[in-house]
């Protein structure tokens, strides 16, 4: 049975309304302050460390993103940790709050399809995160100009722009997850708790669990242990398991893009290094190729999770 009319009717109206709600909410203000203050602290450390060691570096601007100065992790690592929090904060009550405020049936009685409501909410939250991240990105480049005094080259800008795009998709995964949970759970508090639980598990616990699991699946060959080497089978398993976490995918993609000397993200065999000029940066295109699978993983995760919430929302009863 085909339904008549466009599923996107009213999409822009929902998008604009949700966007203005997000931008004017105190929730986003708190989240932005949190990210801004931690990110600025990391940047400050990075800048002061860069000013002391003025070695010749063709990618000085990118160093701002990746240098970590104890006790603070790098700017990218902080974003990898905090972007999910922002996405969850914007998405955990997207659908269930409409039910709880009893606005759902009134809105759906207007001449629009449910598609427009869900899609509008998703895009508005993603746009909010996109705006925040873009502002942050411009801030980093601006600070880099002021404090390092070296104008960034075209490739540096290109690489950091890729960072921005991948970061938005990384936010998309978490936003889809939060949206899915807000569709499944009628209570916003439950949805938020479950989302935060998954976030903590994947960012904090999983990096500790994955090696243990890898050793259980592919025990280390004692001959490698005697030589003081890592067993490649165990290492591969560990990496595959770690990649189940979007956090790890984001980290790997960023490593490839922001550290141009990265040649591979997995274990390397000696014969693969034959002929390589160690320490020489890879061209932009090659770095993108290395980061491409991870980026596709993030995009696919976003789409799959969104599709799940889409199906659930279409089948959901309007009545609370």
């Amino acid at each position: 049975m085909r339904r008549e009319g466009s599923p996107f009717r009213g999409l822009s109206t929902v998008f604009i309304k949700e966007l203005s709600d997000h931008v004017s909410s105190s929730r986003i203000l708190v989240l932005q302050l949190l990210i801004l203050s931690t990110a600025l602290a990391a940047l400050y450390e990075a800048i002061s460390s860069l000013r002391q060691n003025t070695a010749e570096d063709p990618f000085l601007l990118l160093r701002l993103f990746t240098i970590d100065q104890a006790p603070l992790p790098s700017f990218v690592a902080i974003l990898g940790f905090l972007i999910p929090l922002m996405a969850i904060g914007l998405g955990f009550d997207a659908v269930n709050s409409e039910h709880n405020r009893r606005t759902m049936s009134r809105i759906l009685a207007q001449p629009i399809y449910r598609d427009a409501l869900l899609m509008g909410k998703f895009l508005a939250a993603l746009a909010t995160i996109g705006i925040s991240l873009t502002a942050l990105w411009l801030l980093v480049i601006g600070l880099g100009l002021i404090f390092l005094g070296v104008p960034p080259g075209g490739e540096e800008i290109a690489r950091s722009a890729v960072f921005l795009i991948v970061a938005i998709f990384y936010a998309g995964v978490w936003l889809s997850l939060a949206l899915l949970l807000s569709t499944v759970f009628r209570s916003a508090a439950t949805a938020a708790l479950v989302a935060l639980g998954i976030w903590l598990f994947l960012t904090v616990l999983w990096p500790m669990l994955a090696p243990a699991l890898a050793q259980a699946i592919a025990p280390v060959d004692p001959r490698y242990a005697l030589l003081g080497l890592n067993d490649p089978a165990t290492a591969v398993w560990m990496q595959e398991l770690l990649r189940l976490s979007p956090n790890d995918l984001f980290g790997e993609a960023m490593l490839a893009v922001l550290s141009p000397t990265t040649r591979t993200l997995g274990p390397v065999f000696l014969d693969q290094l034959r002929g390589a000029v160690m320490g020489a940066p890879l061209p932009f295109g090659e770095s993108i190729m290395i980061a491409w699978p991870q980026t596709v993983g993030l995009i696919a995760g976003t789409i799959i999770l969104f599709a799940f919430s889409y199906v659930l929302f279409q089948r959901q009863e309007v009545r609370a």
Partner: peptide
């Protein structure tokens, strides 16, 4: 079921305990 938009364009609905954006 087939033309919900045309129906909803012409029919007004006030649900039980209606809610608004506070």
């Amino acid at each position: 079921a087939r033309e919900p938009l045309k129906v909803k364009q012409r029919v007004g609905y006030l649900p039980d305990a209606v809610g608004f954006y506070d």
